[in-house]
Nucleic acid binder design. Structure first.
Lengths: 332, 332
DNA sequence: CACTTGCCTGGAAGCGCTTCCAGTGCAGGC
DNA sequence: GCCTGCACTGGAAGCGCTTCCAGGCAAGTG
């Protein structure tokens, strides 16, 4: 960042007082054109940029709240829904959103360290990731409120869905629709919500074969599906921990000529856009509500310290479509 | 936001000096447990929160750059690609991203007014929207760099694609594939890039019938398509200004039983995820590059004032798939 | 018992800016 | 020729905090 040029340096160079420099910067009409010109020149020569903290402090502006959102750029739709809802929830308030991409744990810690050390925010929204006890202590010391989206937490308020139940719903639906030999397409482990689904799937389906996709996109889902099917050609159903992987599975099945749902059934998770058109059976989760709740909660925590918002476990729904068969009432 | 409780009020209540309060807040070990307790209590009672500007100023922290990103939450994929790329570009630098949702012109002006009045940022990225001469003057006065994504500008650096050319590409492809009576599904006017495509489409297709979707999502696209087809049942092709609308069109065509591409061809724009699977013919635009360029540019403008990055017109490509027919070499 | 040694604490000096207030210089009015 | 008024300018007082420095006090040392 630019060197530490202060208003004094500018004033010196222009041969005026700092008050005058300040006036020029703030567009006061009370400055003669020549002086204004000299000051402008000096500012440009020095590459001077006002120190925002000092401006705020001296100017006594309205107190601005900054909400830092830490989230992994996993899925476009999840990311979009959550941040959009957050932004809308905060739109009326004098708070704004700062976005941080968190690729892994060290990323997260680096960002948090900086954020806390520099007091760069007044509230924290953690999406799909969590923090330990020490961090919590640190936050408490700083009086920094934090909420979690898509994860539960013993000490911090959270909003999420029951991913284990989601996994069970998927498994049961597949069974009900007559699946005998289901397989699982899981996602990278660092996505905890998806890992929970996979674990529940595993448990409910009793050790079904499983393949882990390298990323949360359809191409990776297609690769994983092909590998799984190579090892287990007799699979008649695929439970995918999210919709993107499920579309990848459909892609792979189409390319090797297996009919869906007659030969292989497929179920996803999320119900993101276009799944309707594609006809994917999936579990719908209310992503926007995550953002709304988080926005409202962090705002109350900031304005009324000490008050803790209620945790929320949001409802999920099975959305049966054409990639699974009609449920059999009395399947064994 | 919380009342104006300062460190002095806390010190008074706790019966200590402000230096001690500061020590407690910053976790210095140099405070006796009883004192620490009293101060903590006073902080809680008063609901005290340190003034960030003052902390920064006194602490002499690293200068932090804030980049404000103004963007309409139009399409999940566009939004995701751009902000992700921006975030990654800025990840190494000591700059962070503040996100503002811009629904309309007044929204934009409100946000800009606040941002500038409060000196809340060091750089501006405008996505899909523009600003007038007066604003530019104001930015220059404040020495605030700004770049535009998805729009051109006479005074500010920009990155975009040639949307008019994109519209022409769509129209020509449709013609080449034998379309005789094409229709246009346009988007809401406030999305200028899409309006440019629609205008070029209009011009190239010589007054083809056209319907404007109420929103940029497939449901709206389906509605628009149904209406257009009701007025013009003989249409044999649909040019949609983005992929979501195109999927809506496919939906509508499926629901009324028109075969694609035999009876009606469809072309979209963007090439977002799943379009591959759906088989939609479309125009691909490099959204991520928008974000990368913007991030790099704004960073150089901040660090080296006066230097203006080059404008960039990025390439686009036609991606022929199954919703259009095989091109006829010598179609009239 | 005088004297270090530490621990804990408060006073006060800034951090870089805005803004009030008090000039300064100069034109015009008497 | 002196005063008023005006346009412009600089000095200086904070804004709320961190942190250096020095002081007070109890415990430990000779």
């Amino acid at each position: 960042m630019p060197a530490d040029v202060t208003i004094y340096a500018v004033a010196d160079l222009a041969g005026v007082g700092i008050a005058t420099v300040s006036r020029v910067i703030n567009g006061s009409p009370q400055v003669s054109p020549q002086t204004r010109g000299r000051v402008r020149q000096a500012i440009a020569d020095l590459g001077y940029r006002p120190n925002r903290a000092a401006c705020h402090l001296a100017g006594g502006r309205t107190r601005q709240a900054r909400i830092a959102v830490l989230l992994p750029f996993f899925s476009a739709h999840f990311y979009f829904s959550v941040t959009k809802a957050l932004a809308h929830e905060l739109a009326g308030s004098p708070a704004d959103l700062a976005l941080y991409d968190i690729r892994d744990r060290s990323d997260k810690n680096r960002v948090l360290d900086r954020l806390l050390a520099e007091r760069a925010c007044d509230g924290l929204v953690l999406v799909g990731c969590s923090i330990g006890d020490q961090r919590c202590d640190q936050l408490e010391r700083l009086g920094l409120p934090a909420v979690l989206i898509d994860r539960r937490h013993p000490r911090l308020p959270w909003v999420t869905i029951d991913n284990a139940r989601g996994g069970r719903l998927m498994a049961e639906h597949l069974r009900t629709c007559g699946a005998r030999r289901p397989g699982i397409i899981a996602g990278p482990d660092r996505a905890v919500a998806l890992a929970d689904r996979a674990a529940a799937l595993d448990a409910t389906l009793g050790g079904a074969p499983r393949e882990t996709a390298a990323a949360l996109e359809s191409a990776a889902g297609a690769v994983a599906t092909r590998e799984l099917l190579e090892r287990h050609p007799d699979l008649d159903a695929l439970a995918c921990v999210n919709d993107a992987l499920a579309v990848g599975a459909l892609e792979a099945l189409r390319s090797i000529g297996r009919r869906v749902p007659d030969e292989v059934q497929v179920i996803g998770f999320d119900d993101q856009p276009f799944m309707d058109f594609i006809g994917l059976t999936t579990i719908r989760q209310p992503m926007a509500t995550f953002g709304h709740w988080a926005g409202r909660s962090i705002l109350t925590m900031i304005t009324r310290p000490g008050q803790r918002p209620d945790d929320r476990l949001l409802p999920i729904h099975l959305v049966p479509r054409h990639t699974t068969r009609t449920p059999q009432e009395h399947s064994p």
